[in-house]
Amino acid sequence: MRIIEREQRTAEQMIRIYCRYKEGNKELCPTCQQLLHYAHNRLEHCTFGEQKKTCRNCPIHCYKPEMKKRMREVMRYAGPRMIFFHPITTIKHFIHK
């Protein structure tokens, strides 16, 4: 699996956890769908391509301030819970980090 695809899958898993357990939605709400689409688009057009590191360690911050704030909120909530919902993804993320 390509690095970009793995990062997209990780972002989607985190957004789904946030939307379901923090916001109480069974399906992605329009706001979370918009964030997911934005995240996938940013990753697909990443300047570093397959040599990219995690976004946290990237020298170029390509998210608009509002989207960056929303993604940070999602990651703060979903990040610690990822080990319970997606343990393999979490381990791979920390190895890649």
Rank of each mutant, 00 (worst) to 15 (best):
C46I: 01
K26D: 12
L35D: 09
I95P: 12
M14D: 00
G49S: 04
E5L: 12
F94D: 03
R16M: 03
Q34G: 13
E66N: 08
R70P: 04
L35N: 07
V74K: 05
H96F: 14
Q34N: 11
F94A: 04
Y38V: 01
C29K: 03
I17Y: 07
H93C: 07
R42Q: 04
K26T: 13
C32Q: 06
H86S: 14
T54L: 06
Y18W: 02
P87H: 06
Q8D: 03
C58R: 09
G79K: 00
P65Y: 00
R76L: 13
Q13P: 02
P87I: 05
E7G: 09
M75G: 08
K92D: 07
T54M: 06
I17A: 11
R56F: 09
K97V: 02
I88G: 05
Y63V: 10
M71T: 05
G79T: 00
I83L: 08
R56E: 07
Y38W: 02
L43T: 06
K52G: 04
E44I: 03
A11Q: 01
Y77L: 09
I95D: 11
Q13W: 04
M75W: 05
E66K: 10
Q8R: 12
K97M: 04
M82T: 05
I83Y: 03
M67K: 15
P30D: 05
K92P: 02
M67F: 06
I95A: 13
K68T: 10
C46W: 01
P59M: 03
R9W: 02
H61N: 11
Q13G: 02
T47N: 11
E12H: 07
E44P: 00
E7C: 15
M1A: 14
C55N: 07
M82H: 02
M75S: 06
R16P: 01
E7P: 03
K53G: 14
R20F: 14
R9L: 10
K26F: 11
L36S: 09
R56H: 12
R42T: 04
I17E: 10
E44N: 07
P59C: 02
C55Y: 04
E50T: 10
C62N: 13
L43R: 07
M67W: 09
H45E: 12
I88Q: 13
T10E: 12
E50A: 11
Q13Y: 07
I83P: 03
F94L: 05
H37K: 14
Y18T: 06
K69C: 03
I4C: 05
C29L: 03
I88T: 10
I17D: 06
N25H: 15
E44D: 09
K68P: 01
E73S: 01
M75D: 00
I91G: 01
L35S: 12
R56G: 15
T54Y: 02
R56W: 07
E23W: 05
F48D: 08
T89C: 00
Q13M: 10
R72N: 02
R81Q: 10
G49L: 07
N25W: 08
H93W: 12
L43S: 04
I83F: 09
I4H: 06
H86D: 08
E27R: 15
H61S: 07
